[in-house]
């Protein structure tokens, strides 16, 4: 009985592997144009994040967000997104008093020092801010959990 089950199962797996191999073997190689598009999708978010990070009013209006009510922008304390240390998250964040992600910290800065309206954690504006911060800090060594 056991044998009867395993033989067809083995055969099915072999067929699947073959199909997968065939699919992989026939997958088109990435073209430079495609890679350029991938990069542009990312850099577009970096540009939007840069504008938000630097307090651009039009971008905030367009996205329906209010990151500050004090006249401060993120960049006024964090030029080039310095001193953000995105590569050190997640970690216990002292000000928040619990284990936190970079998005938690971005929202804390919006709500506390900037007195703005915090973002939905998965919103486009949050993703764009995250893209800019990571982009500007690229090359820094990953050290999650560092205070």
């Amino acid at each position: 009985m056991t044998r009867q089950i395993w033989i067809p199962a083995g055969a099915a797996l072999a067929v699947l592997c073959f199909v997968a191999f065939q699919a992989a073997a026939h997958k088109d190689k990435h073209t430079p144009e495609q890679l350029k598009v991938f990069e542009e999708v990312f850099l577009e978010q970096v540009r939007i994040g840069d504008l938000l990070f630097h307090g651009d009013a039009d971008t905030q209006k367009k996205m329906g967000v209010q990151l500050s009510r004090t006249g401060m922008s993120c960049a006024m304390c964090h030029p080039f997104a310095s001193d953000v240390h995105p590569h050190e998250f997640p970690k216990f964040q002292e000000q928040i008093g619990k284990f936190s992600t970079l998005r938690d910290m971005i929202n804390w800065c919006i709500e506390k020092p900037n007195e703005g309206v915090k973002l939905d954690s998965d919103s486009d504006a949050m993703k764009a801010l995250e893209a800019y911060i990571y982009w500007s800090n690229r090359g820094s060594k990953l050290e999650p959990g560092t205070h």
């Binding site: 540009r47 840069d50 080039f80 001193d83 240390h85 982009w135 800090n137 090359g139 820094s140």
Partner: peptide, 21 residues
């Protein structure tokens, strides 16, 4: 201490000079 392990890059609006480390 807060300035450690930090590679920063000028904004895209700049003329992309080499990264500053």
């Amino acid at each position: 201490g807060d300035n450690r392990n930090q590679v920063l890059h000028p904004r895209l609006a700049d003329a992309e000079p080499p990264p500053i480390t």
